[in-house]
């Protein structure tokens, strides 16, 4: 029924991934020297590691990482909830969707990061502009996926439920909501990768907190290693968020055949 990866096979693949990581770090460490690339262009791995330790000690790195992570988490959560809500409302009411669709489309096409300066004008150098950009950027993939899922539900399934005398709420709770979950999680995965972008852009534009701030600070100081540290930590925040989504997804969608779930 479903192809189950054997343990040795899985272990071999994981070993392959790890080997690739070791090779990558080695190339990063020594290749710039071989090709005579200066450290301010590509600092070798060891230098970035040293910078990381220095920033931990001197630059409140944990604080800045924490601020960025908090903004990502809050923005992602609120954006996702709003997206889920809007997706269901629009999915269930074709009239509302028809009326709102040109505006939704316009908002979707507008580059969300361009709103960052505007939000800073409105809210100053606080956490709110960053969270708002994040909400905006997370909202769309979630909403679109939920909307599409509600639309795609076989009307005969709804008729079946209604023939069992289901009321509107029962149709939602027993049919529409669970049916929308797989696409919802696909949307959340995409949103998880975008959430960090939203926050970083906000931090780049203004303020003196967060990894985005350290990024611009490093750039101004000509400290390439610092920029590298910030980029790596931002990526890690994204990976953690993505992993959480996948973890929840695997628990919630456990009924799906293993093949239709993906490793990445």
């Amino acid at each position: 029924m479903q192809t189950v990866l054997t343990q040795p096979h899985l272990r071999r693949m994981m070993a392959g991934s790890f080997l690739l990581f070791v090779v990558f770090v080695a190339v990063w460490q020594w290749a710039p020297g071989w090709f005579g690339i200066p450290h301010f262009i590509i600092p070798p791995a060891s230098l970035v590691w040293d910078e990381f330790l220095r920033m931990l000690a001197k630059d409140k790195l944990i604080f800045h990482t924490g601020i960025t992570a908090m903004q990502v988490a809050v923005g992602f959560l609120l954006g996702a909830l709003l997206g889920i809500f809007a997706g269901f409302v629009l999915g269930m009411s074709p009239t509302t969707e028809f009326v709102l669709s040109p505006y939704i489309l316009a908002l979707q096409i507008a580059p969300k990061v361009a709103f960052a300066p505007l939000f800073i004008i409105w809210f100053g150098y606080t956490v709110y502009p960053k969270i708002l950009v994040c909400i905006l950027i997370v909202f769309f993939p979630v909403m679109i996926n939920v909307l599409g899922a509600v639309r795609a539900i076989d009307p005969d399934i709804v008729r079946l439920a209604r023939s069992f005398t289901a009321n509107r709420f029962q149709v939602f709770w027993k049919i529409e909501f669970p049916a929308a979950l797989p696409p919802l999680f696909a949307g959340l995965r995409i949103a998880a990768t975008l959430a960090v972008i939203g926050v970083v852009v906000g931090e780049l534009v203004g303020g003196n907190t967060g990894l985005g701030y350290l990024l611009t600070f490093g750039e101004g100081a000509g400290n390439t290693a610092m920029v590298f540290v910030a980029i790596i930590l931002l990526t890690l925040i994204g990976i953690v968020l993505y992993a959480i989504v996948v973890l929840i997804e695997n628990r919630v969608l456990h009924y799906l055949p293993a093949r239709s779930r993906t490793a990445v």
């Binding site: 076989d154 399934i157 079946l160 049919i175 049916a179 009924y255």
Partner: peptide
Amino acid sequence: LQKDLLLPW
């Protein structure tokens, strides 16, 4: 119906 309409979840 012809379709079983079983809910996959």
